[in-house]
Each structure stands twice: as structure tokens, then as C-alpha cells.
Simulated scan of single mutants.
Amino acid sequence: MGGTEHLTVQREGATLVLTLNRPEAKNALSLPLLVGLYDGWLEADADDRIRSIVLTGAGGDFCAGMDLKALAGGSMDGDRYRDRMKADPDLHWKAMLRHHRPRKPVIAAVEGYCVAGGTEILQGTDIRIAGESATFGLFEVKRGLFPIGGSTVRLPRQIPRTHALEMLLTGRPYSAAEAAAIGLVGRVVPDGGALDAALEVAEQINACGPLAVEAVKASVYDTAELTETEGLESELERGWPVFATADAKEGAKAFAEKRPPVYRRA
């Protein structure tokens, strides 16, 4: 199991929990954090025993984005990871889910600050649960910066354009209630409850057929930019093979026998 000094990895049954672990800096992005995060995505996809991923932050915050103090000083923590960046100059974008999409469902459990790069990473997750005091926002324009983690492309596709542009152009903070109202997050829970709620959702996913789950997720994203006709054709191409799997037969058999199914990714 991987991890770095700024990213912890833990198994909870069939769920891999990735925790941004730099609480003294509100989990601001660092090289150790980014390397650990990307390695976590790869670990989840490589291990068929893992059926879902939960992404959260330590110390009561999700992620405050880039470490601006380090950026202003021309350096970031983690010199010993620079060889990873040289070997893969795209690593940080993959870590932030800009240039990588895990095949397993990713559930975000958000408490506290989830701003700038934190809100950008959030847009790469599949299901999002927030504590009621969580704060969201894209503050880049207030610092004379550009939200280059994908927000000018993704955000208007995930929430109504008027809300996306207000968030992008004002740089103002959004409460969890506002984030839920515009569709940026799916559910708001009492403070401190986001991780437990995310793990509950993960358990529900883990109880389903993994081949079916992964095919459904892939279909949703792969057909997003297609016409309806093209999308429906693509759905059949991806969906019909699932019916021929042993897992599909097991699901029907378990239902008939009134027992939990035992899926084997076959």
C-alpha cells in the first residue's frame, strides 16, 4: 500500500481511502501530496479487490489548493519527488484528475476548505458529500491567476453556466448549502459526518457487481459529448457484454435464492 508524508492510504473493506494529509497547510497541494495522490489512483485501478475510492482530507479541511507561499518563493516541498515529475511532466494533472479518470467510482468526503485547486480536484470525482460548514470556491482570479485545473471546461458542464461563470469570475466563497443548490455537491451532512456518509455510499457500491459498476461509470463519461443517438449506440456496445458475464448470472441467481450475491469479476 502506497502513500507519502502528505497522502495516507487506508483500506476499508473493498474501499481505498485516500486522505490528503497536510493539515497544517489546510492540505494545500505539494509534490509529496500530488505524487501520493496519483499513486493512489493507480493502486485502486490495479487492484481488483478495490471496488471504490473515497477521497478526503485530514484535520477538518479537504484542500485549500496550491501552496501560494511556496509558489511565490519559487519552490514546493518534496525535492526527492522531483524525479517523478521529470519522468512524467503530466503527473500533477493526473493526480488532480484533470488528465486521468480512475475506472473505480470516486467519492469525495469534504469538510472545511475545498477551494481553488480543491474545488478543481472535486470536479474530477464522481459523488460528492460535504459537511455543512464546508467552503467551496475558485479564488484564482482574485490572485490574478487562472483556474487551469480544468474548471473553465468542466464546471459549466457540471452545473448551470450562469452559476459556473459566477463562481469562476467573482472568486467568492460558496457555502455547502449553496454548492448543493447549484449541483456542485450532491449531499450535505452534519459537520464531521462526510467521511462516514461517503463510506456508506462506498459500501452500497461495493455490494454491486464490479464489472457492471465500472461499465456504467465509463458509459456515463464516454457518452457525455455524443449526440443522443450516438450515445445510445455506445451504451449498447458497452452494456450488452455485461449481461453475458458470470457476475450477471450470479446476480439473478442470488436474487432468486434470496441471498447476497458473490461477485467475482467474471
Score class of each variant (00 low, 15 high):
M1N: 06
G2L: 15
E5D: 13
T8F: 11
Q10F: 04
Q10E: 13
A14S: 15
T15M: 02
T15W: 11
T15C: 14
L16G: 06
L18Y: 06
L20K: 06
R22A: 10
P23M: 14
S30G: 14
L31D: 06
G36M: 14
Y38H: 14
G40S: 03
A44M: 09
A46R: 09
R51G: 00
R51I: 02
V54W: 04
L55A: 15
T56G: 05
G57L: 10
G60K: 06
A64W: 03
G65H: 10
A70W: 11
G74C: 05
G74V: 05
M76G: 03
G78S: 08
G78T: 11
D79H: 12
Y81N: 00
R82M: 05
D83E: 12
M85H: 05
A87F: 00
A95E: 04
M96A: 05
L97A: 02
H99I: 00
H99C: 14
P102Y: 05
R103T: 05
R103K: 10
I107S: 01
E111S: 05
T119H: 07
G124Y: 07
T125K: 04
R128W: 13
A130C: 04
A134E: 04
T135P: 08
F139Y: 04
F139C: 02
E140C: 14
E140W: 08
R143K: 14
G144Y: 10
F146Y: 15
P147G: 13
G150D: 02
S151Q: 02
T152I: 06
P156L: 12
R157I: 14
Q158P: 04
I159M: 11
T162K: 14
T162I: 11
H163D: 03
L165I: 08
M167C: 13
L168G: 00
T170E: 09
G171D: 12
P173G: 07
Y174L: 11
Y174T: 01
S175G: 15
A176G: 10
E178R: 13
A179D: 00
V185C: 04
R187D: 07
R187S: 13
P190Y: 00
D191N: 15
G192A: 12
G192S: 10
G193M: 10
L195R: 09
D196Q: 09
D196N: 13
L199Y: 10
A202W: 03
Q204I: 12
Q204Y: 09
I205W: 02
N206L: 03
G209E: 06
G209V: 03
V213S: 14
V216H: 08
T223V: 04
L226D: 06
E228H: 02
T229P: 03
E230V: 07
G231V: 00
G231T: 01
L232Q: 13
E233I: 02
E235Q: 06
E235S: 03
R238V: 10
W240Q: 12
F243K: 07
T245G: 02
T245I: 06
A246F: 05
D247L: 08
A248Y: 04
A248D: 02
E250D: 02
E250H: 13
G251W: 14
K253C: 04
F255N: 07
F255M: 07
A256D: 13
E257G: 12
E257F: 05
K258E: 04
R259N: 12
V262S: 08
A266S: 14
A266C: 12
